[in-house]
Each structure stands twice: as structure tokens, then as C-alpha cells.
């Protein structure tokens, strides 16, 4: 990688006999949104805490912006903004006061802090609530204030630990948009941990799948699905007029399609033909069906998304192939 911002080498964390993070090797480049995807308890938070120097690794090395997090956590924390899972604020001060407190902890001069806080509060859409006590904030508001809180020190890297859990769908959409725009405008490096694959798919450039302390695989969505679905990459759904759900005799269609090179499997479910093929054959299939004189109602190409990848990893186990 050209500009590694986060680097982990053989990072391991053990709690007595339990291994939370097991030999993690991971590099995140500059200006990248990296998604750390894994079920609850996979060790994502532990890995993040080690990046910030808040927990000492049992063995291995982690560095952020070229600074060793374990040896020099203060310098790392100057450059990294961290939004913890379930971020909390002091209840009695207002949102604005909470932001200013963080700014003071970062030794930002008062007038500068005020300016930045105003800007950020505007940016995360909390302008109306800035003088309300944070004790009265909703979960989504607190999360947005949390993002402003992370940004006030002008970090180079931001780490978001399950930032969207417990927010309504609209809130999630806004939040994710905000993250993407941050990356585009300021070239921030973002590490995004989540168990929600759809959100990760929406924003992340690369994804690492993390199960039981181990990084199972890393890559963009496409390469991940290639890695897993070697025989069948593409699923095509076809609805044919002459073969509705009641018509179970689908032999003619099978005969027609099976000779096509690259088709692995054909199934007929509820009036829809599900055709698994190794490459995108939708054009050929459509042509064949139409040439045979059938009425093609619709043809739908389904790519394997993270859902399938996720399920393969977490539910079907990792013994693929």
C-alpha cells in the first residue's frame, strides 16, 4: 500500500485464556474508508482500543500515522478521532458546552474552539439543539454530536465503532452521507466498524471480515465475492410467460438453456427461473429464450452482495470451495 495510515502487524490480545484478537495483520491506506465487519463480540472494539493505545496488546505492533500506539498513545490520540460505541456526554451541560470541553482537552484556543464548534454543529445538523442539555438528546442526536466531537480536533484519521446502531433508517442514511462527504472534502481516513453489512457496503472502499478475533478476508466487495463464489458468481432471474408457477413441466426451458456454456444450475421457483452462472450471461439467455419463441416477461440480474458473503462466513462457516 502506498500510504499506510493504520498498520497492524501480528496484533494479538489475550484475556487470560480467551483470545480477543488473534494475529491481526491489516493495513489501511490514506483517504480510505475501511469497513471492519463482524458479529458482536468478534474483537472489533478490542482492536480499535489497541489502535488508540487504550489497551495494551499482548503481542504484535500497531501504529497509526507512523506512530506506535502502544508506546506513544498521546501523539496518536492527537491525530485520531474516536467515536466509541454508545457515545456518552455529560448530561447537564449543553451540546455546545460538551464540544468546547473536548476542545479544551485538546488545548485548542478558546476563540478557535468556539468557531469550530459552531461550524461543526451546523455541519452535523444540530444547530437548533446546540443550547439544549445533552441529557435530553435522543440517541441519533448524541451520535451526531459525537461526530462533531470527533472532528473538533481536526483529526487525520477517524475511527467509528458501531456508529449507526440504534439510529432510525433516515438518521443512518444522513450519518453515512456525512461520513462520505467528509472523506471527499478533507481526505480523512476512516475506519468504520459495524455488524451491519448494508451500511458497510454503502460507504466503504474496502472491507475486512472479522470473526472470532481473526481477519477472515480483506478486499473490496467485488473481490470478496469472487473469492467466495468461484463456481457461481451471478444469479439471473427470468420470468417466462409460458411457464407460470402452476406449470411444473420446465423441461423445454432446461433443454434450451443447459447447452449454454457457463450455466451451472437452473431452478424454477414460484414461476421464476433462477439461473446460476459463472459469468454475466444475461444477454445470451435473453436471446435464447426469445429466439425459442417464448415470451420473456422479465430478466433480472442479481449480484452477490455482502449479505450472501456475510452469511457464508458467519452462518455457513468458512469451509467454502
Amino acid at each position: 500500500m502506498l500510504n499506510p495510515v493504520i498498520e497492524m502487524v501480528d496484533l494479538t490480545k489475550k484475556y487470560r485464556s480467551f483470545t480477543a484478537v488473534d494475529c491481526l495483520n491489516l493495513t489501511v491506506g490514506k483517504g480510505e474508508i475501511f469497513g471492519l465487519l463482524g458479529p458482536n463480540g468478534a474483537g472489533k472494539s478490542t482492536a480499535i482500543l489497541m489502535m488508540l493505545g487504550l489497551t495494551e496488546p499482548t503481542s504484535g505492533m500497531v501504529s497509526v500515522c507512523g506512530i506506535n500506539s502502544t508506546r506513544n498513545p498521546i501523539e496518536v490520540k492527537r491525530k485520531v478521532g474516536y467515536l466509541p460505541e454508545e457515545v456518552g456526554f455529560y448530561d447537564n451541560p449543553t451540546g455546545m458546552e460538551n464540544l468546547l470541553y473536548t476542545a479544551r482537552l485538546n488545548s485548542i484556543p478558546e476563540s478557535e474552539a468556539k468557531k469550530r464548534a459552531e461550524e461543526l454543529i451546523e455541519r452535523v445538523g444540530m444547530a437548533e439543539a446546540k443550547h439544549k442539555k445533552t441529557g435530553k438528546y435522543s440517541r441519533g442526536m448524541r451520535q451526531r454530536l459525537g461526530l462533531a466531537d470527533v472532528l473538533i480536533k481536526k483529526p487525520e484519521v477517524i475511527i467509528l465503532d458501531e456508529p449507526t446502531s440504534g439510529i432510525d433508517p433516515q438518521g443512518v442514511r444522513d450519518f453515512l452521507q456525512l461520513i462520505v462527504s467528509l472523506k471527499q472534502e478533507q481526505g480523512l481516513t476512516i475506519l468504520f466498524s459495524s455488524h451491519n453489512l448494508h451500511q458497510v457496503q454503502q460507504v466503504c472502499d474496502r472491507v475486512g471480515i472479522f470473526v472470532k478475533g481473526k481477519l477472515q478476508s480483506v478486499g473490496d466487495i467485488e473481490s470478496l465475492s469472487k473469492q467466495l463464489f468461484t463456481e457461481s458468481l451471478c444469479l439471473i432471474e427470468a420470468g417466462i410467460h409460458e411457464f407460470p408457477a402452476e406449470n411444473t413441466d420446465t423441461k423445454p426451458v432446461r433443454k434450451l438453456l443447459e447447452p449454454i456454456n457457463g450455466i451451472a444450475k437452473i431452478e424454477h421457483k414460484k414461476g421464476v427461473f433462477e439461473i446460476e452462472c459463472t459469468s454475466d450471461l444475461s444477454a445470451t439467455i435473453a436471446q435464447t429464450i426469445v429466439n425459442a419463441g417464448y415470451g420473456l416477461n422479465f430478466l433480472n440480474k442479481k449480484e452477490y452482495g455482502l449479505d450472501e458473503i456475510y452469511n457464508r462466513y458467519f452462518e455457513g462457516g468458512i469451509q467454502h470451495g
Binding site: L54, V80, G81, K153
Partner: peptide, 14 residues
């Protein structure tokens, strides 16, 4: 319990 500890600790302070 309020979740403020980890937020404050993530600031550059000992």
C-alpha cells in the same frame, strides 16, 4: 456507565 470515559480518554491526555 454514561460512556463519557472512553470519549475523554480518546483525547490526548494521560
Amino acid at each position: 456507565n454514561r460512556g463519557t470515559l472512553s470519549r475523554v480518554m480518546a483525547q490526548p491526555i494521560y
